[in-house]
Computed example of a mutant assay.
Amino acid sequence: MTKTLLITGASTGIGAATARAAAQAGWNVALLARSKETLADLAGDIGEQALALPCDVTRRDELDEAVAQAVAHFGGLDAVYANAGKGTSTPGIEQGDPDEWHAMIHLNVLAVLTTAHATLPHLRKTRGHFVVTGSKAGRDHMKGSVYGATKWFVQGFAGNLAEEMREWGGRCTLITPGMVDTPFFDEPKPDKIQPDDVANAVVFALSQPRSADVREIHIMPGG
């Protein structure tokens, strides 16, 4: 039976690359993002293995509805990739924008928690796998980086969730890339990590046998 992966932040960058890579590896993919048209185009490119579910994952009602639709369409969930995230346009603490912090924390922290809360009952049924995008910024101290602080949360949360899921045979993997060439940045970064590189790491983690619990994959730009 074909397994199903639900991806948040699926419309562009790492999420879209992971959707394509997972589908190529034989997975069904449930695609969650706010961009309805971009998501529909991606699902159309992938074909019958993909289901576009436009939603704002910071809104619990929309997230719950998308998860329910994915489960109804594909018959269950075998893996979830909590990939949605954002940064801020104003760096630093003293000069930072609290409104930007609020929106970022809601997505980078609370939406990761609610994605886990909404999907773990389904993953428990399949002894499934929860994958989450962290960052090198969550492993190092970076001057005045509130974004980095949100990824420090993700770093700790993923380890704690891995221990919780282990009790019933589930797994959790944290992906911690350095700078990735995605729309996250205003200018292209062709010499940095490519979205396909991160996607390949996600598919690698999902493909490991039960005897191997891959807790973290840390990726840095080559060269």
Rank of each mutant, 00 (worst) to 15 (best):
Q208V: 00
N108F: 08
E48N: 07
L6T: 02
K151M: 04
T182Y: 15
S207W: 10
A149G: 12
I14G: 12
K125Y: 14
G47N: 06
A118S: 11
V131I: 13
T114A: 15
Q49R: 12
L77W: 10
P183G: 13
V154Y: 10
V67T: 11
A25F: 04
V109N: 09
E164L: 09
A33L: 01
E100H: 01
D99R: 14
G128N: 01
W152N: 03
R215G: 03
A116M: 00
V71C: 11
L113R: 10
A201P: 06
T133I: 02
L51Q: 14
H141K: 01
R139A: 13
S11Q: 01
T2N: 15
L120Q: 09
L51G: 10
M142C: 03
H106P: 11
P188Q: 00
T182W: 14
T133H: 03
I93N: 00
E164S: 07
A10K: 08
L39F: 11
T58Y: 09
E216A: 12
A33V: 04
V203A: 00
V109G: 07
S135Y: 00
K143Q: 06
I175H: 13
H129V: 07
R171M: 15
D181C: 09
L53G: 04
P190K: 15
I219R: 01
L77D: 08
Y81A: 13
G15R: 02
M1K: 02
G170T: 14
L174N: 05
D181T: 12
D56W: 08
Q69S: 11
M104D: 08
S211A: 15
T18P: 00
L32F: 07
H122T: 00
V214K: 13
D61C: 12
G75S: 08
H141F: 04
G128Y: 03
S35P: 11
V80S: 04
G223W: 10
